[in-house]
């Protein structure tokens, strides 16, 4: 018996080959992860380094609170507010279009649409998200603006409204899709419980499901806003290139991203103060999108209703 037990002894020893292979896999995966982190960190460092160079010549105060942005023309002035205002105008326009429509779309898809309708609508929305943004820009310029000019003849060829509208169309699929997911994540038992109390589907949706999914819904809004702030091509094409401290959406404006495109594409010589402005604007843009993303993250975790 003892010898039989010996011959059947189970080999539990670690195999050298297996261990080496596993080690190599872990090392290469770690390297890939490290590269993406280092790249991001590098970009941020360069951004702030170059921006710091800009702030040696221009005070932070003048940059943040100045109301004229003419870094490339005499008399030069470095107040970023017109660009921030232009960006926010586009963001506001996009939100007015996309938030109600996107939420309504999500409610329809998650609560009312039959499975068949949903199978058609959702991919169509995703196609909308896949259209290159420059196409939206020309759509704004050649289709939306003429339409706006018919309604309101004083609309300029380049204007904030058309840019806001197309950016709104652009972020609509994102809001619809995220809100749809958030509404679907609410436990079915909650929905049935409300229906069993004699609530209509609309009452259930508005009064039970939306409050229960609120964290996801708000997070989707904030992420969409972040996307609007960073959106470049559509606004560069449609909104114009005139830094303009205005709240009138019919006027031509310039957004922060639009300005960066203009300088990057243009003939501003490297090393000049005008050239360094794009890093200052870029750093501010980065901080704004980072801020909104952090808010979205906080909202998602802080207000999440927990279900078993």
């Amino acid at each position: 018996m003892a010898s039989a037990a010996g011959s059947l002894a189970i080999d539990l020893d670690a195999k050298r080959g297996v261990r080496l292979r596993e080690g190599a896999v872990v090392a290469s995966l770690f390297t890939c992860a490290l590269i993406s982190i280092l790249t991001s960190a590098g970009i941020v460092i360069v951004l702030f380094w170059e921006a710091a160079g800009f702030f040696k010549s221009v005070s932070l105060w003048e940059f943040l609170f100045g109301t004229r942005w003419t870094p490339l023309l005499e008399p030069r002035s470095y107040g970023v507010l017109p660009l921030v205002c232009g960006t926010l105008l586009v963001v506001a326009g996009a939100c007015v279009i996309a938030i109600p429509t996107g939420l309504a779309c999500a409610i329809y898809m998650s609560q009312y649409a039959s499975d068949r309708t949903r199978r058609i609508v959702k991919p169509v929305l995703e196609v909308l998200a896949g259209i290159p943004t420059v196409v939206y820009g020309y759509f704004a310029l050649t289709y939306v603006t003429p339409l706006l000019q018919q309604v309101y003849p004083d609309t300029l060829v380049y204007n904030a409204a058309s840019a806001g509208i197309v950016v709104g169309i652009m972020i609509l699929p994102m809001i619809a899709s995220f809100c749809d997911d958030a509404l679907r994540a609410v436990p079915e038992s909650l929905r049935l419980g409300a229906l069993a109390l004699g609530a209509t589907r609309f009452e259930v949706t508005v009064q039970v499901l939306i409050p229960a999914a609120l964290s996801g819904i708000i997070a989707s809004f904030v992420l969409a806003i972040s996307r609007c702030i960073g959106e470049t091509m559509a606004v560069a094409v449609a909104a114009g290139g005139t830094p303009n401290l205005t709240l009138n959406p019919a006027e031509s404006i310039q957004t922060m991203t639009g300005y960066i495109v203009q300088v990057s594409m243009g003939d501003t010589p490297h090393g000049t103060l005008g050239y360094y402005t794009i890093f200052a604007v870029g750093a501010l843009l980065f901080l704004m999108t980072l801020g909104t993303n952090l808010i979205a993250d906080r909202v998602l975790h802080r207000f999440r209703e927990t279900y078993e």
Partner: peptide
């Protein structure tokens, strides 16, 4: 909807609203 106002239901798992 009218039916369920008169014939209520309690489910297997407690499902209070998040209110």
């Amino acid at each position: 909807v009218e039916v369920r106002r008169r014939i209520g239901m309690v489910f297997q798992k407690p499902n209070p609203f998040p209110k």
